[in-house]
Amino acid sequence: DIAKAIIDLAVYGKAQNRSYERLALFVDTIGPRLSGSKNLDTAIKYMHNALKENGLENVHLEPVKIPHWERGEESAMMVEPRCHNLAILGLGNSIATPPEGITAEILVVTSFDELHARAPEAKGKIVVYNEPYISYGETVQYRSQGAVEAAKAGAVASLIRSIASFSINSPHTGWQYYRSDVPRIPTACISVEDAEMMARMSSKGMKIVVNLKMEAKTYPDASSFNTVGEIVGSKYPEQVVLVSGHLDSWDVGQGAMDDGGGAFISWEALSLIKNLGLRPKRTLRLVLWTGEEQGGVGANQYYQLHKVNISNFDIVMESDEGTFMPTGLAFTGSDKARSIMREVMQLLQPINVTAVYENGGGTDVDYWVQDGVPGASLLDDITKYFWFHHSNGDTMTVQDPNQMNLCAAVWTVVSYVIADMEEMLPR
């Protein structure tokens, strides 16, 4: 009755709401946790102590280097045809403007294709991207590449419509990449509302002028840590089932959803197993990544350090797409492994979360998945996920304790059973 015992404890028993309560204390006390920040250092120390106090084994920190970028003060004021304060958030890795800012006319485009077609018009202007939101994966390229494409056309800055499926004038930040062969220009995201307004004005032939000020600064890479705790396996301790989420977040909101929820249900999995006095045959390893938002930076260094043991990694699991109502498990692996995962998910019939989907993994564990290690990620109802993602709205208020209980039950049953089965998943 192990699966039932886990579900009962997580959803109805003494552990119900524990991951939510732990997360609330964590994010309310520490706040957002940007890569390279003191807040992130504090968060890692906090979790290091918390995992030890929880009685996990081999609790330790693994040093890594991560980007250190700070946004500073920033503003964008539309000065023609009228004065209007634009809601902005500078994009991570952006350079600063001069202290007096950049004042330039706006060119509004809806796509890279339109920008390329109108490239002669972009010279000396601030390019505003008013790209429609299709899906995160498709639309996020405007955030990550917008500055480079605008600079190639001779623009002096870029303002990018937030990658958001809903907006209440809320800018959403994120990481953007420069190219060594293209001049660096300042870049920030703006709200959907302001992007659409400027598009309407532009389509009517109005001249729009904006003053953009950004103090953003990039420092040398900072020292940080991946945080690790384990329940050591009873029979095959060298073999590992890895469960994970990331501790770092953006510097807005509280990072409660991205990825506080994922990190804390991963911790909860080990806590529940300990509470039940269980010890799986192979080691259950919790890793709380650092520097995920800048492209899985801490996870990449973890992979480089540990890939020599790749044959002992049974499965790598990451929850980084919300901890709302769970709908199933995304899985990447061989057909044989998938058949086994389908059987494992049948254990979750009592809470009606049995589906196995394609494309399991995540930014932090894909290094392993690409090398053939089976990968899994929690799927949940992400209808509202991109309303809050990377914005000031990512707070504890969007989390739901009952939904986190269910997510924790799924995460725990899957990780425990795989860790305890006699054989590793076939590759």
Binding site: D1, I2, K336, I340, E343, D420, E422, E423
Partner: peptide, 24 residues
């Protein structure tokens, strides 16, 4: 049955199914 690297026989899928059902 295929043998695994450590010389033990790998379980058949039916055996794996039975093992997983044991956690219900």
């Amino acid at each position: 049955r295929p043998q695994s690297k450590n010389g033990r026989y790998r379980q058949t899928f039916e055996e794996v199914k039975r093992e997983i059902a044991g956690y219900k």
